[in-house]
C-alpha cells in the first residue's frame, strides 16, 4: 500500500520513529456523507415501518419456502406390497455413507424370495451430512430422503438416532422392481 511506502524514518536517540502518512481524514465532508447515509437508512426505515415490501425475513414456523423437488430431508424406509421393509440389508448404504451414520445388522428371513432383511436399521441423524449417497447406492429403492422434513432438535444425542420403526413409519409403498425377484422385471418395465 502507498501508506507504507510513504512512511518516513527519523532517528531519535537510539529509537527509530516511523511516521506513517495516512490518507487525510474525511471529517471535512462528513456532514454531506452523514446526510447521504441518513437518507438511505431513513428510506429503508420508513418504507419498512409502514409497509413490509423490502423485508426479506420469513417468519419461519408460520411461513415456509416450498422445498425444491430434489430436497433431501429425513430418511425413510420404503415398504413392499405386504408392508414389510424393502431393504435387503445389502450394506451398500453404510458402505457409501461418508459419515458412517448407518448401522445395519442383517438377518435371515423365512421368506425364500427375500432371504435377507435388516434386523436393525439405524441412522444417526446427528452424524448424517445429508449427502444422499445412501439413496444413490440403494439397489432396491428401500431408502429415500424425500420426506422434506428436517431432523428435529433433540435433547440427548441418542434421541437423534432414527430406528427402523421410526424410519418405516414415514415410509410409503414402493412398487419399484426388486432386484433378485426373478426375470419378470423386464416385462413389467414395458
Amino acid at each position: 500500500m502507498d501508506t507504507v511506502t510513504q512512511s518516513e524514518k527519523t532517528t531519535v536517540g537510539r529509537a527509530t520513529v516511523v511516521t506513517v502518512k495516512r490518507e487525510p481524514s474525511q471529517t471535512t465532508s462528513f456532514m454531506m456523507t452523514l446526510i447521504r447515509g441518513m437518507t438511505v437508512t431513513m428510506r429503508h426505515f420508513f418504507s419498512n415501518l409502514f409497509t413490509k415490501t423490502q423485508t426479506e425475513t420469513l417468519e419461519y414456523p408460520e411461513e415456509k419456502i416450498p422445498y425444491p423437488e430434489r430436497h433431501r430431508g429425513l430418511h425413510r424406509l420404503m415398504k413392499r406390497d405386504d408392508g414389510r421393509v424393502r431393504c435387503v440389508a445389502c450394506m451398500c448404504c453404510p458402505t457409501a455413507c461418508p459419515a458412517n451414520c448407518i448401522t445395519i445388522v442383517p438377518a435371515e428371513t423365512d421368506d425364500p424370495s427375500v432371504e435377507k432383511y435388516p434386523a436393525v436399521f439405524e441412522i444417526d441423524e446427528l452424524r448424517c451430512i445429508v449427502c444422499g449417497l445412501c439413496v444413490e447406492a440403494c439397489p432396491c429403492d428401500a431408502i429415500r430422503m424425500d420426506t422434506k422434513l428436517h431432523a428435529a432438535p433433540v435433547e440427548f444425542r441418542g434421541d437423534a438416532i432414527e430406528t427402523k420403526t421410526s424410519l418405516l413409519e414415514r415410509g410409503g409403498l414402493s412398487h419399484a422392481i426388486q432386484a433378485g425377484k426373478g426375470s419378470d422385471w423386464r416385462e413389467s418395465e414395458q
Binding site: V88, A89, C90, C92, V114, E115, K116, P139, C140, A179, G180, G182
Partner: peptide
C-alpha cells in the same frame, strides 16, 4: 443367474 447381488454374500 438371479443377479441378487444385494443379498448375496459374495458380492
Amino acid at each position: 443367474h438371479p443377479i441378487d447381488c444385494p443379498i448375496c454374500d459374495r458380492a
